[in-house]
């Protein structure tokens, strides 16, 4: 087991290294617009451009620049270009909003996904099942960037049921915090509700055919007890691993579009803003911390899986 964990962690470091390298290279090969020229502005002179190159180290060799940047990532010294404030500070400022959004959305999609999936499975083939299947397929087919503006337009601007975006800190006003987040939560969750309900449904249908379920039934347990105690419980394991992956992806990725559309001052909005301005330091910071989060949770999930299911462990270490 220890060997497996070590191997997995080494793999994780490798992945992060490659990710950082790719991001660094992409933003350094944007043709014809070196950052020093961009920072120097419309009135720039060659002396000014050169001076900026020296100040930021843009005149170093690429490997040297990469090393400097990575060092700054680890020491938390990344500075954004304009205004020149620490990247870490901006990220930390955005974390409460991003976590509020992701955790709230995760709770909603888990709750609705599981409830709908459970009832779909109970009545597989029935009208409710068909309806829920249709609903979940529709859910995964809606483009979020269309759903969000339409929700904002109808529910926030026309009917004024919900506030129009923004984030109110939980500590400032819990009720406002809640009402401001309802639309964004559902926007993020709607896709996963469908997905989770379908995964749970098919897992449950699998489990229902297992011998021990039949045994349980034969023992005379009530249908409800069989379902909850045996079927549901055993169907949840893959859901939990899936949830780990998805939650990581939400925190690191989904936030970008949703936060932008709803004007939530989180890490995602910061990332989007930085891409718009082509500022490498914050993009690097957000990407690496985000990737770390995803990779770390992936690794945790793998390790948990290996722990729960020895076949995985053997399968991998057999090589």
């Amino acid at each position: 087991m220890a060997r497996f964990i070590v191997r997995r962690l080494v793999g994780m470091v490798f992945v992060l290294f490659v990710v950082s390298l790719i991001v660094f290279l992409i933003f350094n090969v944007i043709p014809n617009s070196p950052p020093a020229q961009r920072l120097a502005g419309k009135n720039a002179t060659p002396v000014l451009v050169k001076s900026i190159e020296e100040e930021w180290g843009f005149d170093d060799s690429l490997p040297q620049q990469y090393l400097t940047m990575m060092k700054k990532v680890f020491t938390g010294e990344l500075i954004q270009y304009s205004p020149r404030v620490p990247v870490d500070e901006r990220i930390v400022e955005g974390i409460p909003a991003t976590l509020s959004l992701s955790i709230g959305a995760a709770i909603i999609w888990l709750f609705f996904g599981l409830v709908l999936g459970y009832y779909s499975a109970l009545r597989a083939g029935g009208k409710l099942d068909k309806f829920l299947t249709g609903l979940s397929i529709a859910g995964i087919s809606i483009p979020v960037f269309l759903l969000a503006p339409v929700l904002i337009y109808f529910l926030a601007e026309k009917l004024k049921i919900f506030p129009n975006g923004f984030y109110v800190p939980l500590t400032e006003d819990p009720w406002e915090w809640f009402t401001h987040l309802v639309l964004p939560w559902f926007t993020v969750a709607i896709l996963s509700i469908g997905f989770y309900s379908r995964v749970l449904r098919s897992n449950m249908l699998d489990v229902m055919n297992e011998d021990y379920v039949r045994t349980a039934r034969a023992k005379g347990l009530s249908e409800r007890q069989v379902m909850l105690r045996h079927v549901l419980r055993n169907s949840l394991i893959p859901i939990i691993t899936l949830f780990g992956l998805d939650f990581g992806a939400t925190v690191a990725g989904t936030a970008i579009i949703t936060e932008t559309l709803f004007n939530i001052e989180g890490v995602g909005l910061y990332a989007a803003e930085s891409i718009a301005k082509l500022e490498l330091p914050p993009i690097m910071g957000v990407t690496l911390y985000g990737a770390f989060f995803v990779v770390f949770i992936n690794a945790l999930v793998d390790i948990a899986y290996a722990y729960l299911d020895p076949r995985v462990r053997l399968g991998t270490s057999a090589q």
Binding site: L39, A40, G41, A44, T45, V47, L48, E55
Partner: peptide
């Protein structure tokens, strides 16, 4: 203005000695 490499510094480079200061600080 020159030390922070401001985009506005070129307006003032015609001041005697400013060009040199822009380079050496």
């Amino acid at each position: 203005l020159f030390k922070v490499n401001s985009g506005g510094s070129p307006f003032y480079t015609t001041i005697v000695g400013a060009e040199n200061f822009a380079k050496t600080k």
